[in-house]
Write a protein that binds this DNA or RNA. Structure first.
Lengths: 149, 149
DNA sequence: TAACAAACAGAAATCGTTTCTATTTGACCA
DNA sequence: TGGTCAAATAGAAACGATTTCTGTTTGTTA
C-alpha cells in the first residue's frame, strides 16, 4: 500500500481528508494508461467499493483537478476526460476525430502565450488549453470518417 | 440590404437555402462585437422575427460552424460561444475567469503544432483549439474571484 | 473513545442540447 | 406567375451530463 500512503500525503497537503473514495479515485487514475470520463471512472470504482455515487466521483475529480493533481481536458463531443499528471508534467493533447484516441504532445507554447497576453492584453494567465484535433496515423490511412464531429 | 445579398451568396455557395432565419443569424453575428451563446443569439433573433425556435438556432450555428463561416469556441463553463470570422482570420482567445470577457489574441502556434504532430505522431492536423484562461487587466486589479470556475 | 466537521449516498433537479413530427417555406420549373 | 417538392422550421418532448439537496456516515483530532 505504498501508493495509498503517498496519495494520503498528497491529500493531506491539500487539506483534504484521506477518504476511501478519494484514495480509490487516485489509485484508479494513476493506473490509467489513457483518459477516462467521470462515468468510466465511476464504473471501475464500483468494482472496488461496495457503494459509490456518481456525484461523489464528479466532486472528487473536480477537487483534484482544481488542485492540479489531475488534469481535465475537453473532448470535442463535450464529455470531460481526466488523466493523472502527478509526475508527467504539463503537456497537450492530440485527439483523433475518427477513433477518438487521445495522444500526448510534448509541445507547449506557454512562454509565447505568456508574452502575448502580458504585452498586448496586460492580463494574467492562469491556465491554458491547447488541443489538436486531427487524424491519427492509422485513421489517416483509412477513408471517410473525417466529419465524425 | 447589401449584407443580406452577400450572406445569401455565402449560403448559396454552401448549397444552403437563403432562409430568413439563416440570414438573420448571419446578420446578428456579423454585428456582434464579441461572442455570444446560442441562447443569447436566440433572444436577439426573437426581437427581429416573430417566431424562431432555439433548436433552429442551434442547427443553424452548427451548419455555419461546420462550413467555416463562423467559429465555435469552448468556454470553460462549457457553454459554446460563436463568433463571426468571415474576414478576421484564424486566431485564439483569452477568457477572463472573473468577468468572462473574451479577447482576441494574435498568437497562433499552428506551425509548431503541425511540425510536432507530423514528426512524432505521424498524424494529420485538422483543427486546433488554443484557449487561455486568466484575469483581464481590470479584473487582475481587483481582489478575489479567481476561482470563478 | 467522543465529538464534530467533512464527506458521502441516493434521489431529484437542472440545464444545455438534440430529436421527433407535423407544418411551412424557398427554389426551381412549367 | 403559380405549382411542386424537398429542405427548413416550430414546438413539444426527450436526452444526458452534471449539480444540488438532505439525511446519514466517516475520518480526524483531542
Amino acid at each position: 500500500m505504498n501508493n495509498n500512503e503517498s496519495f494520503a500525503e498528497i491529500l493531506k497537503g491539500l487539506q483534504l481528508k484521506a477518504t476511501t473514495r478519494r484514495l480509490a479515485v487516485l489509485s484508479i487514475l494513476s493506473g490509467e494508461q489513457a483518459y477516462a470520463s467521470p462515468e468510466e471512472i465511476w464504473k471501475k470504482l464500483k468494482r472496488k467499493l461496495n457503494t459509490i455515487g456518481l456525484p461523489t466521483v464528479y466532486r472528487i475529480l473536480e477537487e483534484l483537478s482544481d488542485n492540479g493533481v489531475i488534469t481535465k481536458i475537453i473532448h470535442p463531443s463535450r464529455q470531460l476526460y481526466y488523466y493523472y499528471c502527478g509526475n508527467a508534467g504539463h503537456h497537450h493533447h492530440f485527439i483523433c476525430v475518427s477513433c477518438r484516441k487521445v495522444e500526448d504532445l510534448n509541445f507547449c507554447a506557454s512562454r509565447e502565450i505568456e508574452n502575448e497576453v502580458s504585452r498586448n492584453l496586460k492580463g494574467r494567465v492562469l491556465s491554458h488549453i491547447l488541443q489538436i484535433n486531427g487524424l491519427c496515423e492509422p485513421c489517416s490511412r483509412k477513408k471517410g470518417a473525417i466529419n465524425a464531429f
